[in-house]
Structure formats: C-alpha cells, structure tokens
Amino acid sequence: MEKIKISQDEVTHVAHLARLEFGEEEKEKFTSQLNDILRYMDKLGEVDTTGVEPMTHAIVQKNAFRMDVVGESLPPDLSLANAPESRGGCFQVPKVIE
C-alpha cells in the first residue's frame, strides 16, 4: 500500500479553501489522482537545498515604481459590461447577510 498523502477529508477542506465542490465519485477520483501527483513530488526531498535562497522570479528585478498620477481607466459602463448581474452602477451578488 502506497503512502496516503492527502485524504478525502483533506480534499474536501482544500476544495473549500479553493471555493470548489465535488460530487462523491469525482472526489474519490481526485483524491487518488492528487495522491499520485503528490507522491511524485516527494522526489524533491532527494535534493539538498540547505542554504539555497528560494527563487520566485525568473529574472532579477527591482520594484517597478511609477509616478502616482491619475491616468486613463475603464469607464463604469465598460467595467460592468461583462458582469452576470449589475444594478445602479454596481456588481450585484446573491445575499451575503441573512
């Protein structure tokens, strides 16, 4: 039996963090596939990374500053044009507070 890296309960928890949901059958398939993938990642444990600075960007770059001036931006009607629902110049969502 290969080591379980992620259980079905953990899959449910991670799905919630990612704002996803799965049916029972889908969850089983995902759990098994995620375990395969995560077991493959164990390979990285073979590499000695003591003292290695993590690399999060491909090229060395300093902060890209610009002047704090008002530029052109999208007008409200265009900003709302793709919204599934909007009202009174605002994005509309289902009820948040009971």
């Binding site: 992620i6 953990e10 899959v11 991670v14 799905a15 963090l17 990612a18 704002r19 996803l20 949901e21 799965f22 995902f30 596939q33 995620l34 993938i37 995560l38």
Partner: peptide, 21 residues
Amino acid sequence: KKTRAAGFGAEVKRRIMIGTY
C-alpha cells in the same frame, strides 16, 4: 462554489487543488 465547480474543467480543478494544497 457552484460557479467554479461548473465553470472549470477537471484539469483546471486538479491544478487549483494542487496549488491550494
């Protein structure tokens, strides 16, 4: 949740799950 569950396909969900984990 229902929007993302229905809007994304299986491979995208798999990668979102790996990344979130």
